[in-house]
Amino acid sequence: MKKDQQRLKFLEPAVRRVFCAVLDAHPEIVDRLDDYAASRIRIDVRDAPFCMVMQVSKREIGVYRRDAKVKSDARIGGSFMTLLKLAEGGGDGDSLFFSRDIEISGDTEAVVALRNALDDSDMNIVRESLAAFGVLGLPLRICYRVFQDMRPLVAGMFAP
């Protein structure tokens, strides 16, 4: 299968928008990555049918079928929630690695640099994703606030 056929182009505009919004909001990520900003890093979301390949220095991110053969320097794999936790500093990368919740391959230096840069950034992907969509994000923000407010209530309803 050709590379273009492996690409999920319909997802890319939204993902790219969020990716660029995060980089704009956290310029310190690029600074901390230093030379590793040029590394092409593949993110394999285990419980999703797609993967992403990003290159911070070029502000590029591609979305591909999960089994796509795409050139990258390094790879990080994990469940969506684990990767989200890692990106937002809510989970310790070493602990997640020890427990096999994440796996890495390729250029370990690039992965370590990315992990450290993200950990320092204090980012909140949900918040920044919503901000990335401007006015269109308003209904999403309302839904998110309602979801946040309702979460303890819903959790309580299902508690033993």
Binding site: G89, D92, G93, D94, S95, R115, D119
Partner: peptide
Amino acid sequence: RQRGRAYTEA
């Protein structure tokens, strides 16, 4: 020092 802030906090 090489660990994430989640480790540090905990």
